[in-house]
């Protein structure tokens, strides 16, 4: 085997090793609120906005807050540094990325699943144009 192959293989292994290491350190688990609270790690949680409890954007602190409910029906107050995300009210579900701090969920990202991504359903069809 030629030295350049050996060097090549070493470089590739080192590269993949580094990749595996940083992949592991930058993975964000999908989980529910209970386990997010228990671990305190940065996670992603899918849920819905609890409309009755409102949503508020505080323009001095630049924090958007709302109450979210996950699949296991657990509710939590979410604080997001930034403006109200587009299509927030009509989102069918919400994915928040962040971690628990002091009983509240501090989100670094709020993804809204907009119904435009979903095909229309029959109810919408019947209501069309009305």
């Amino acid at each position: 085997m030629k030295p350049r192959y050996i060097i090549g293989i070493i470089v590739i292994i080192a590269g993949l090793g580094f990749a595996a290491y940083s992949l592991n350190s930058s993975k964000i688990e999908y989980t529910n609120l209970s386990s997010a609270e228990a671990t305190g790690r940065k996670v992603q949680v899918k849920g819905v906005w609890v409309k009755e409890k409102g949503a508020d954007y505080n323009n001095t602190s630049n924090i958007f807050s709302f109450t979210m409910k996950d699949d296991s029906q657990k509710e939590v107050k979410v604080l997001f540094q930034g403006a109200r995300p587009n299509n927030f009210e009509i989102a069918e579900s919400i994915v928040v990325k962040g971690r628990f701090e002091g009983g509240e969920f501090h989100a670094s990202e709020v993804l809204t699943k907009c119904p435009s991504k979903y095909e229309g359903n029959v109810d919408q069809l019947k209501q069309s144009g009305s």
Partner: peptide, 14 residues
């Protein structure tokens, strides 16, 4: 394995 997402920092670091 548990469902995960990759943080964008991974790409920047690499």
């Amino acid at each position: 394995l548990p469902k995960i997402a990759i943080d964008p920092s991974f790409y920047n670091k690499m």
